[in-house]
C-alpha cells in the first residue's frame, strides 16, 4: 500500500480539525526561526512534489513525444480522455475495481465487525494481525501469490475440479471475460482486513448504554445494526470508503504484474497503467500527464465528497 493511499483522508480530517478547534493554535511568541525549521521539508517537498505536480499540469497542455519540441495542444489531451476508447475504458475498469476494492470489503467489514462485537472473541489479536497482514505486503508479491492461485493448475481450478465444477475452470487472468474480476478479487483480499479492523475500532467506541437501550427495547441483531451500529460508524465508513476507493483508482502494481500489456484484449487497463504506457511506451507524454492530472482531481474530489457525506457531525 502506498503513501497517498493511507493519508488521503488524513488531509481532510486535519483540515476539519484545524477549522473546528482554534485551541490548537500554538503557544508562544512569533518566531522567525520557524522558517528555518521548515526549510528542509519545504525545499524537498517543493522541488520533488509541488513543482512536478504543476509541471504535470503544464505538460498536459502539450503534444509531446518526450524527445523533440512539443506543440501547444490546449485541452486536446483532456478531450482525448473522453473520446479515445483506451483511456475512457481504463476509467470504466476502475468502476468495476471500486466494487471489489471498496463496496464488498465495506459490506464484509460491517457484518463481520457486528458479529464479532456481540461475543468476546478469544485470540482477537491473532485474528486482527492476520486479517491486516495483506496490507503490508508489497503488491508485486501479492501479484505473484495470486498468479499461482489463478494458474491453469492453480489452487482455484483445483478446488473447482474437486467440487465437480470442471466446466468453469479456466485461465482466469488470460480470459478477457474474467481477468478484471480476478484482479478485483485480489483487491477484496487486500482491503477487507483493513476495513474489518477499522470497523472493530469504531464499534468498540460505541457506548454500551446504546446497545443496552436497544436490547431493552427488544431489538434484534438487524435492528441493532441499523439503529445503533450503522449511524455510529458513519465516520469509519467514510474513512474506509475513501481509503479503498482511492486504492482502486490508483491500482498499478497489481495490474502491471498480473496482466502484462493491459491484460487480454486490454480488459484490465487502468488509468495509472495508461499514464505509464502513454508516457514511456507510446510517446504521448501530454496525454499521460493529462490522465495523471485527472487521477489527482478524482482523488481530491472523492476524498472531499465522501468526507462531506459521512464526516462532519458526530
Amino acid at each position: 500500500m502506498s503513501r497517498t493511499l493511507t493519508t488521503s483522508t488524513t488531509s481532510s480530517t486535519a483540515t476539519r480539525r484545524n477549522k473546528a478547534a482554534p485551541s490548537t493554535t500554538p503557544p508562544g511568541e512569533p518566531r522567525r526561526v520557524g522558517y528555518l525549521y521548515l526549510l528542509p521539508a519545504l525545499l524537498v517537498y517543493g522541488v520533488f512534489l509541488l513543482f512536478p505536480l504543476l509541471h504535470s499540469g503544464w505538460l498536459s497542455l502539450y503534444e509531446w513525444d518526450g524527445l523533440s519540441v512539443g506543440t501547444w495542444a490546449g485541452l486536446d489531451n483532456y478531450v482525448g480522455i473522453f473520446t479515445e476508447e483506451g483511456a475512457l475504458a481504463s476509467f470504466g475498469h476502475v468502476g468495476v475495481l471500486v466494487v471489489f476494492f471498496a463496496v464488498i470489503p465495506v459490506c464484509i467489514g460491517l457484518v463481520l465487525a457486528t458479529a464479532l462485537h456481540r461475543i468476546r472473541v478469544r485470540g482477537l489479536p491473532f485474528f486482527r494481525t492476520s486479517l491486516f497482514l495483506p496490507q503490508v505486503i508489497a503488491m508485486v508479491v501479492v501479484a505473484v501469490a495470486w498468479q499461482q492461485i489463478y494458474a491453469p493448475d492453480g489452487a482455484l481450478n483445483e478446488a473447482l475440479r474437486f467440487i465437480g465444477l470442471d466446466g468453469i475452470t479456466r485461465t482466469w487472468l488470460g480470459d478477457s471475460g474474467t481477468a478484471l474480476f480476478a484482479v478485483g478479487a485480489v483487491g477484496t483480499w487486500v482491503q477487507t482486513g483493513l476495513v474489518v479492523v477499522l470497523m472493530l475500532g469504531g464499534i468498540g467506541k460505541i457506548s454500551d448504554e446504546l446497545f443496552d437501550a436497544a436490547r431493552l427495547d427488544g431489538a434484534g441483531v438487524v435492528w441493532e445494526f441499523r439503529a445503533v451500529i450503522l449511524p455510529a460508524l458513519r465516520k469509519e465508513i467514510g474513512v474506509a470508503l475513501t481509503l479503498t476507493v482511492i486504492a482502486a483508482l490508483r491500482t498499478f502494481d497489481l495490474v502491471y504484474m498480473m496482466t502484462p500489456q493491459g491484460g487480454p484484449g486490454g480488459s484490465t487497463t487502468v488509468p495509472s497503467y495508461e499514464v505509464y504506457y502513454q508516457a514511456f511506451r507510446a510517446g504521448e507524454v501530454g496525454s499521460a500527464a493529462a490522465i495523471g492530472v485527472v487521477i489527482t482531481l478524482l482523488a481530491f474530489g472523492i476524498t472531499f465528497l465522501i468526507t462531506r457525506i459521512t464526516g462532519r457531525e458526530r
Binding site: 502506498s2 503513501r3 497517498t4 493519508t7 488521503s8 488524513t10 488531509s11 486535519a14 483540515t15 521539508a41 519545504l42 517537498y45 520533488f48 512534489l49 509541488l50 513543482f51 512536478p52 505536480l53 509541471h55 504535470s56 505538460l59 482511492i246 490508483r250 498499478f252 488509468p271 495509472s272 499514464v275 505509464y276 508516457a279 507524454v285 499521460a288 500527464a289 490522465i291 495523471g292 492530472v293 487521477i295 489527482t296 482523488a299 481530491f300 476524498t303
Partner: peptide, 16 residues
C-alpha cells in the same frame, strides 16, 4: 503541505 497527502505518484512521475 497537506496537499501532498492526496497527490498520487502517477501525477508527478512523468515530469519527474
Amino acid at each position: 503541505m497537506l496537499l501532498g497527502l492526496t497527490v498520487p505518484t502517477e501525477a508527478v512521475v512523468v515530469p519527474l
